[in-house]
Design a protein around this nucleic acid. Sequence first.
DNA 1: AGAAACCGTTGACAAATGTCAACGGTTTTT
DNA 2: AAAAACCGTTGACATTTGTCAACGGTTTCT
Lengths: 193, 193
Amino acid sequence: MHAKLIAYISQYANLPLTSEEQALIVATFQPKKLRKKQYFLQEGDVCKHAGFIVKGAMRQYSVDEKGAEHIVHLFIENYWANDRESSTMLTPSKYNIDAWEDTELLIITRAEMLDLMDKIPAMAQMIRLMDERNAIASQRRLSSTISNTAEKRYEEFAAHHQQFIQRFPQHIIASFLGITKETLSRIRKQGTK
Amino acid sequence: MHAKLIAYISQYANLPLTSEEQALIVATFQPKKLRKKQYFLQEGDVCKHAGFIVKGAMRQYSVDEKGAEHIVHLFIENYWANDRESSTMLTPSKYNIDAWEDTELLIITRAEMLDLMDKIPAMAQMIRLMDERNAIASQRRLSSTISNTAEKRYEEFAAHHQQFIQRFPQHIIASFLGITKETLSRIRKQGTK
DNA sequence: AGAAACCGTTGACAAATGTCAACGGTTTTT
DNA sequence: AAAAACCGTTGACATTTGTCAACGGTTTCT
């Protein structure tokens, strides 16, 4: 179960992991299974764990006064599920994270992660790289959101995230893009003409 | 001129800087002055420097096919101006960054920054913290953009960023929020009733 | 001092997107 | 096997936001 994580770290750190380091990683990350619809994090709770997704699909969303869900992140294999604001500030989360498919995770607390980053150079490097990529991806998404029409946003997203399109239903994708499912349905219809 | 940067690093790293470290910082960061409207980065160029703003105000924006500007970031004192995607991937930037007021910067290349992070623990720590904060801020902005109406976005922004409201004209704020200046004008009028 | 550029506002209208209700076809649950 | 929940689509209509043109009051440039 930890093999996928080890491979992930080695790949992104571009550094080999010693067998001691690997043992430490295996000892620290705890396996966790979630059935579809189970919560990984609930609004109001402090986010105690980050989770590396070995298998499955999850979503992160807020719920507004009217009960409508607004999806802020989608996760599949090799993604990290986490509410960073809550876990670093130790404040109650504004978001829910739940499993969209049955999901297998490897979870770790913030303190454990800091410890591992200290002891394992490859881990620190991998995290730095993830932060970098994450910052770039956020920037792109933000830029697309404020600059483009719903149609262009969808096309851009579909072009680069085929995986998500296949595994999440349209109303989830629509919410992720900040539009309603009806609007997305009409955009797609028109796009295929 | 470097004093403000030294103070900034000490504050966010929560570690004192030795005088050798301070000397290294002073030797590495180059002062640069920009007159209002001068470019710090132009679309198509690779972003070679990150700039710490000692004094002044800047904006980062893309220009679409119709010539319309879309403002993705606003910067004032104690902010870092940089196109991360371009500077880390070494790709041509999709953005312009220019001075909105006469501005004084301390600039540094990516290679120099990596070197400083290696040699000065406080620098590495400060950067980590900035990444963290940046990630949280991006998340909030994104969440607000996809969940809220233009009116709520403006109110939220105005409540937390009084400084920007005061120093940038309304059409810049509007673009930053992803709406037109006319819409913002109407929102404000209605909001004061 | 005069000209030009910039800025915010307003009106009339157009376009994009949301809301609500309904439907038929799945898939899931019981 | 029946019932319930889920999913995507469509139509009619409402709301939000954008577009274009114009204006008067700055500020900036020369």
